[in-house]
């Protein structure tokens, strides 16, 4: 079954939104994400371009500046909420993981 759009975020979506906590040129995200993740996550230029279009359509980010063809974006409240929900989901997953393995170790 197809993933419902933005119900959960892929790693690439997550880090793109994370970069946009403060205004940032779209193109700079291409460098920031590998730097932020020690090159564990790389975003392809085509993928990022499409993601930014979809985030704009979904009102999760908004455009805040234009310099020639370079555009900068920032998270909207909806985007922040999405990121927070995703973070809580992952935290809960992590907590469940620790709970299970800590119980095993105690036994």
């Amino acid at each position: 079954m197809a993933r419902e759009k933005f119900k959960t975020l892929t790693e690439q979506m997550f880090y793109t939104l994370l970069c946009l906590r403060e205004p940032c040129y779209g193109m700079d995200i291409l460098d920031r994400v590998p730097a932020m993740t020690n090159k564990r996550v790389n975003i392809g230029s085509g993928t990022l371009y499409t993601l930014l279009e979809q985030f704009l359509d979904g009102e999760m980010i908004r455009e805040v500046g234009v310099e020639g063809r370079k555009r900068s974006y920032v998270l909207t409240e909806k985007g922040k909420e999405m990121l927070k929900t995703e973070c809580e989901r992952m935290t809960a997953q992590l907590a469940d993981y620790h709970k299970i393995f800590e119980q095993e170790n105690e036994q």
Binding site: R3, I43, G44, G46, T47, T50
Partner: peptide, 14 residues
Amino acid sequence: PTPIETDAALEVDT
């Protein structure tokens, strides 16, 4: 190089 498309679902949709 990092491929232009790195998300399979987005690539298929595009």
